[in-house]
Design a protein around this nucleic acid. Structure first.
Lengths: 152, 152
DNA sequence: TCACATTTAATTGTTCGCAATTGAATGTCG
DNA sequence: CGACATTCAATTGCGAACAATTAAATGTGA
C-alpha cells in the first residue's frame, strides 16, 4: 500500500506541508482584515494589543518573545500604535536600555470593541471549537519543534 | 467538564489558533532560510520555482492562483528571478495581456540543487511523514474554508 | 462596427519581517 | 576600579504582501 516517497514526490510534499501553513496564514489574514479595519489595526498590531490586554507595561523584548518578533519589526509597529494613541512608550528608569509599553485609555477601551472578533473568526473557520483546539495544539507543537532546531 | 468559553477566554483562543498558524509559518521560514540561501532564493521565490518545475511557460495569473498571490507581489518577485537569470518573462503573442514565465537553463538546473531541501525540512519537523500529511490535509481544509468565506 | 465591460500586469504606497549594524546602558571579571 | 562582554532598542536595507489604481488588450452586445 504505502510506497516510499520518491524525491520528486517530496519535492511536492514539503511544499504542501509548509505551503499549507503559509497559505493558511494568509487566508486568516484576509479574514481578519475587514474585522480589524474597523478597529484601525493590522493583524500584527492586533497581536501586540492582545499581549498588552493581558499584561500591560512590559518591555519590548517581552512582547517580542511572545510573538517571536524582533525589534526590527516591533519598533516601527509600536511607533504606529503610539501615533494612533493606543500605547505609550517610555524608557524604564530602572534599566534605561528597556522601553516599556503601556496602554493608553484608548488602548484599554479598544479591548471591548475587539470582543466580537474571535466569534467572527470561529464562524469563518466553520469548524468546532474542539477541532480547532486540537489543530492548534498540533501546530504549536510543530512550531516549537521547528524553533528548537533553529536555536541550535 | 467542558465549560463554555467566556469572551475573555476566546479573546485568547482565537489568538492561539490563528497565531499558531502565523507563528508556525514564521518558524518554517526560519528553517528554510539557511537552506534556500545556498540556492539564492527566498521562500516565496522557492514556491514560484516549485510551481515552474512542475509546469513551465505559464502566465503570471496561473502562478498567482496556485500560490494565492497577486500581481502586486508576483511582478517584482518575478523580476528578481529574471535578474537572477532563473526565468524569462515574455508577452504572449496570442494574448498580449499575458506575461508568460519560462525557466532558463539555470532555472531548470536549480531543481537538482534543491532536491535535498524537503528532507531537511522533514528532519526539522521531527515528525513522521504520515503525521505531517494528516496535519497538512487539516490545514488545507481549514484554509479552503477561510478562503470560501472571503469569496462571498 | 462601436461602445462598453472584463481581463491581465504593472505601479504606487503602506506595513510587515528579518539580517546586520549601531549605540547606549548594564553586568562581569580580573 | 576599569576593561570587556552582554543586553536592549533603534536603524538601515531588502524582500514580501496587499489595496487601489492605471493602462493596455481582449471580449461582448447592440
Amino acid at each position: 500500500m504505502a510506497r516510499k516517497l520518491s524525491t520528486l514526490d517530496s519535492q511536492r510534499l514539503d511544499n504542501q506541508i509548509c505551503f499549507a501553513v503559509y497559505s493558511a496564514a494568509h487566508a486568516f489574514n484576509r479574514v481578519y482584515k475587514p474585522l480589524l479595519d474597523r478597529l484601525g489595526l493590522t493583524y500584527p498590531q492586533y497581536l501586540v494589543m492582545l499581549v498588552l490586554w493581558e499584561r500591560d507595561d512590559v518591555p519590548v523584548k517581552d512582547i517580542g518573545e511572545k510573538l517571536f518578533l524582533d525589534s526590527g519589526t516591533l519598533t516601527p509597529l509600536l511607533k504606529r500604535l503610539e501615533a494612533a494613541h493606543l500605547v505609550k512608550r517610555t524608557r524604564s528608569s530602572e534599566d534605561e536600555r528597556q522601553v516599556l509599553i503601556a496602554l493608553t485609555a484608548q488602548g484599554h477601551a479598544l479591548k471591548d470593541k475587539a470582543r466580537s472578533v474571535p466569534q467572527s473568526i470561529l464562524a469563518a473557520s466553520d469548524c468546532s471549537v474542539s477541532e480547532l483546539v486540537a489543530m492548534k495544539d498540533e501546530i504549536v507543537a510543530l512550531r516549537d519543534r521547528l524553533n528548537a532546531v533553529i536555536g541550535e
